[in-house]
Design a binder for these strands. Structure first.
Lengths: 138, 138
DNA sequence: ACCACCTGTAACCATTATAATTACAGGAAA
DNA sequence: TTTCCTGTAATTATAATGGTTACAGGTGGT
């Protein structure tokens, strides 16, 4: 299963986007997510590294570097998920076996196409969409 | 990352499909995959449980229960991956926070759509396709 | 009946990823 | 200077994964 960082990161961004004029400390965000502030700061760090948010050391309040309608779930996924392939493939299949010999490249292709499908879907939804869903629900 | 069981299971099924008239012992399959025979038997067990193959205790040789063209990568994925959701979501977001309150259901929907996209892709490729790729490559 | 070969499965271990937590150096702003 | 904050290192518990040993019991040849 894909780690909860993706879910938490989306939660964080939705929170920031929903209160653009407030400076939310990591403790506040942590209490909304219900986890430890350090977990939040770690994820904020990854989002910052990817250029999705701005933060200032020592000062509360992260802000989006672009409109929430231009941050896709794929952007978030890529920011917090270091691995670039979703599917693991066994390392050393037997090269003397006709199947073992070619299986890696065949699996790599098939899995990468599947991952593309996933990522294409994720790129079709933005933080803004999440916010709208969130507040349309009530 | 998704475990190597999916990759190994596809490898196994391709091997079985490629030698329909031979009774392959788990040791033989293991040496093609390059792992321990018990790992193979464990995966064969899951594939059997899902009705994809037939085996006989004490006797070498698994066989497909239907043509390789009717076994999709999604069938394999589902057989060896017990979890039904691909994305994990944090357990107890704060219900007193407007974002925390609704985030679970919004994430569940978004993630389930993404997973659908992935699964739709996997269901479009069969073990037969894998075999053809494998032997077209040489 | 015996034996070699096999499957099915339990049990155990090492490795790794994750998430939670404590601790602390140092920035920001009053 | 004091308070509140971020950034990050270090540590821990937990869980999943894959490799391994061990063994009960089925299969089929002799």
């Amino acid at each position: 299963m894909i780690n909860t960082r993706v879910a938490v990161a989306i939660h964080i961004l939705a929170l920031i986007a929903s209160k653009p004029h407030e400076d939310l400390p990591s403790d506040y965000i942590a209490s909304s997510v219900n986890t430890n502030p350090v977990v939040i700061r770690r994820i904020l760090g990854m989002l910052k590294k990817e250029g999705l948010i701005r933060t200032t050391a020592g000062k509360a309040g992260a802000s989006l570097t672009r409109p929430s309608s231009e941050i896709t779930l794929l952007d978030v996924f890529r920011a917090v998920e270091p691995k670039d392939s979703l599917f693991a493939v066994h390392e050393n299949p037997n090269p003397h076996c006709p199947v073992g010999k070619g299986i890696r490249s065949v699996l790599d292709r098939a899995f990468s196409e599947a991952q593309d499908a996933l990522e294409r879907n994720l790129s079709g939804e933005t933080i803004e969409d999440i916010l709208q869903d969130l507040f349309a629900e009530e």
